[in-house]
């Protein structure tokens, strides 16, 4: 008992800062590669915007009476890129590495460290080049918002509270995606190897990339239910984007209910990921050597 108390807890923030610094150094070692990767991820983003520009040539909103017009939707798209880029920068490389650690038995070393294992394996690497897309998302956001505020017919009034809540819900979105990714990565302990991790991730998050109204029809409803309540990826982008873009004025009361639910879902999914991770660790048997 005494020994346990005397063990000093590491300063998690400091440890994370060191991880981030090391990753930056490693990224900067291959500078051309870094630039190329930034460009390539940004060009995917640009292509995506191009697609929606074409769509909005032919229609003025996505869905009838949903209020997702061009600039509102740019805010949505900007939020999507922002959240996804944060996840890709901080968690994607770690999730991939985690599967590899399990396969090679390298996880042993992580388990021995006097630090929370989930923290260690989820924050070890930072992929700085993905932050190009964070920047891109912010530009798109600024562009959309400035149009909405500056337009002549009912310009948006953005209340100060919105600016406060938006980052909170972006953070919630990132946390939900992180939890999902941790759960997916942890399954590789049981499966030995998880090649389809990437695919599966792509297919699931694909559902989060569109306004939830598009699922409000016939057989879209079960999908809406599953991806709101069972795997809450639909609220990830929708809640913060809706908060900022305000496609509907006045806001419908259900928006606040959904926002409150998002907070709940964030906590629940974080706990779930913790539980899955620890269950998975218990069945870990070291490999090789």
């Amino acid at each position: 008992m005494k020994i346990a108390k005397s063990v000093e807890h590491p300063n998690y923030i400091q440890v994370f800062a060191t991880f981030a610094k090391n990753s930056l150094i490693r990224n900067m070692m291959f500078r051309t590669n870094f630039v190329l990767e930034s460009i390539s991820s940004a060009s995917w983003a640009l292509m995506n915007v191009g697609f929606y520009l074409i769509v909005f040539e032919h229609t003025n909103s996505i869905g009838r009476d949903t209020g997702w017009e061009k600039y509102e939707f740019f805010v949505f798209l900007g939020t999507t890129w922002l959240i996804n880029a944060i996840v890709q920068a901080f968690f994607m490389p770690n999730a991939e590495e985690f599967s590899e650690l399990i396969r090679t038995g390298g996880l042993d070393f992580a388990l021995l460290k006097p630090i929370d294992t989930q923290f260690l394996v989820s924050f070890r690497k930072v992929e700085w080049s993905s932050l190009a897309n964070v920047l891109f998302g912010l530009v798109l956001l600024a562009y959309g918002v400035s149009h909405l505020v500056g337009r002549s017919t009912h310009p948006w009034q953005i209340e100060p509270i919105t600016w406060l809540l938006y980052p909170v819900f972006v953070f919630c979105g990132v946390t939900i995606l992180y939890s999902l990714m941790t759960c997916l990565a942890a399954t590789s302990i049981w499966l030995g190897r998880n090649q389809t991790l990437y695919d599966f991730w792509f297919y699931i998050t694909n559902f989060s990339r569109y306004p939830s109204e598009i699922y409000e029809t016939g057989w879209g409803l079960p999908l809406w239910g599953i991806f709101t309540f069972a795997i809450p990826v639909l609220v990830v982008v929708n809640v913060p984007a809706r908060l900022l873009a305000q496609p509907l004025t006045p806001r419908s009361p259900s928006e606040w209910a959904l926002a409150a639910y998002t907070l709940l879902a964030t906590v629940a999914s974080l706990l779930a990921s913790r539980w899955v991770f620890q269950r998975a660790l218990r069945s870990y048997r070291s490999a090789s050597s």
Binding site: H58, T59, N60, G63, F202, Y203, N206, I214
Partner: peptide, 27 residues
């Protein structure tokens, strides 16, 4: 894997459904 490849189309279909709702007609 082949079946899975159709999944992204599902969201595309929903997206287009919503778009066609708002234009009522052909594009």
């Amino acid at each position: 894997g082949t079946l899975m490849r159709f999944l992204p189309i599902i969201t595309q279909i929903f997206l287009w459904w919503a778009v066609f709702q708002s234009i009522e007609g052909r594009m």
